[in-house]
Simulated assay, not measured.
Amino acid sequence: MSDKVCAVVVTYNRKNLLLECLKALRKQTRPIQGLYLIDNASTDGTPELLLEKGYITELPPQNIEEPWEKEFIIQNLTDGEEIKLYYVRMHENTGGAGGFYEGVKRGYEKGYDWLWLMDDDAEPKEDALESLSIYFKNSNIVGLAGSVLLPNRTIAIYHRGKINFKKVFPLIQIPLQLQEYQKQTVEIDMASFVGLLVRRNAIEKIGFPKKDFYIHHDDIEYCIRLRSIGKILLVPKSIIFHKKASKTEVEKFFLGRRKLRKNFSEYWLTYYGIRNLVWLGKRYSKSKTLFYYQMFKFLLRQILGIILLDDNKLKRIKFIINAYIDGLQGKFDNKKPKRLLYEK
């Protein structure tokens, strides 16, 4: 087994889902050799539970001012071989993008041949990595990914697909047709960080995920860079389950139609998706005229929705406009959303 694989798992306040993810990684029939666990300053007792379950034997210090890393040894549940577990306790929540930046950088510096990226709510099937490893020797492949299934075993189509550089707002990705999943392999342009396996020499050329994104669309941005130097291959028989977190939207009705709206206390999270998509659209769209038309059209629709359905209307409108402007100007102040909404 010449290729060394290191999983990179980013977690924040989902300790029970994390344990299920870690167990699935330990049960792989094609074992992993390393596991970078990036704990984004969880406040739900994640380190204590990891200690209780034997994943770590030492708790991180309190009140750290920079990331703290410690290496531990766990066993693969399939063959009993050792897995090096690198537990990184972040000093603050850097979002999914910051967590994957940290994990990819550290895993790359440790010399692993492949890095398998996933959130803490992912659960790869036992033979998921084995099905992907068949293609390790294809030198023109820079990324591998399997099918993402929801708990009800339906395919989560937006996790794998093509990228459309002509019509880039409000979506840049085009999901694969379901019949594509019947093939042995499919060339794709993007795969979410729910089970994307990245080759080391690709990281050497394109660098690490863009930590400035904080959350949302960092995986699309990274795949655009990956595709510039090689192929990303979907292997449908490799399966990873995605246990989506519960939604926080509020249900409202307008003219008899059901609308889901974000609660004001959670509204700050919408900033990152808008800003990052605007940045991607401005940078990569083939038709700038079409991009600006689509962007302004979508902005007007959002403002209208706020006026008709939401509370704190002026704050929300100002907030949304700031997200668009910051995306156009490439400003990545990730503490700004909460300042805009909640500080007097």
Rank of each mutant, 00 (worst) to 15 (best):
Y101C: 00
G54C: 02
Y86C: 05
E66I: 02
G103M: 08
E65D: 15
T57I: 00
Y87W: 03
H91N: 13
K53P: 01
R89E: 03
E102S: 08
A97P: 01
K84V: 04
T57Y: 06
Q75M: 11
T57E: 07
D44M: 12
G99C: 05
M90A: 06
N76L: 04
L50T: 06
Y55C: 01
N93H: 12
T94F: 06
I64T: 02
P61M: 10
Q75G: 06
G98S: 07
T57G: 11
G45N: 14
F100V: 00
G45P: 00
E92M: 11
L59A: 13
I83A: 05
K84F: 00
D79P: 01
I74H: 10
W68G: 02
P61I: 11
G103R: 07
G96F: 13
A97D: 03
L77R: 15
Q75H: 13
E52W: 10
G99H: 02
E82D: 13
I64L: 03
G96Q: 14
T57Q: 12
P47H: 13
P67K: 05
L50A: 08
E81H: 12
E81T: 13
E66G: 04
W68D: 11
E66K: 10
M90C: 08
R89W: 01
E66C: 02
R89V: 01
I64P: 00
L59R: 15
G98P: 01
Y101H: 09
G95D: 03
E58N: 15
G80L: 05
T46S: 12
H91P: 04
P61W: 10
G96I: 00
H91K: 07
N93K: 11
T57L: 03
G95R: 01
L59I: 10
D44S: 11
E81W: 05
L50F: 06
P61Y: 09
Y86S: 05
Q75Y: 06
F72L: 06
E102H: 14
Y55H: 04
I83F: 02
Y87H: 03
G45M: 13
A97G: 05
P61H: 13
G98F: 04
E66P: 02
W68I: 05
I73F: 12
E48M: 10
P60H: 06
Q62P: 03
K53Y: 09
T94P: 00
R89A: 03
F72K: 05
E52I: 01
L50P: 00
N76C: 09
E48D: 13
G98C: 07
E65G: 14
K84L: 11
G103Y: 08
G45R: 15
E58D: 13
E52F: 09
M90L: 08
G95A: 11
G80E: 07
F72R: 04
E65W: 09
N63F: 02
L85A: 08
L50S: 06
T94G: 01
E92G: 03
P47C: 10
G99S: 08
K84T: 09
L85C: 08
L50I: 04
L59K: 14
